[in-house]
Amino acid sequence: MDMIITISSGFFLLIGSFLCFSGAIGLLRFPDFYTRMHAVGVTDTLGAGMILVGLMIISTDFLVFAKLAMVLLLTLLIGPTTSHVLAKAAFHNGLTPKSLSNQEKNNKEISSSNT
């Protein structure tokens, strides 16, 4: 039983740290602001989720478990709110996303009607 707990929590922690690391790589590699935001989305949802689930498995106390669940819920509530506010602020202040060439006309229409 002890063995199963150790192995499963190690598995979740490994996947979570891999996801956080790839999200940070994506933050450096992607070409413009809007695509970088998707990379941060990976670390905010499943990266944080996997690490916290891995910690929940090895927690012995019920209160510790509940606090980890609280941190997970707060992360899942806060992540989309901040990325939406950030994207909306950038969009309304005239930062146009790089896009496919056949879509550029479409983008111009949207941004000119909104600013």
Binding site: C20, A24, L27, M37, D44, A48, I51
Partner: peptide, 19 residues
């Protein structure tokens, strides 16, 4: 906005690091 995004990600990573 890139800077604010990076600071936000730094904050969420700090939460994970503390736990």
């Amino acid at each position: 906005y890139d800077r604010i995004l990076a600071v936000n990600m730094f904050g969420t990573k700090t939460v994970l690091l503390i736990s």
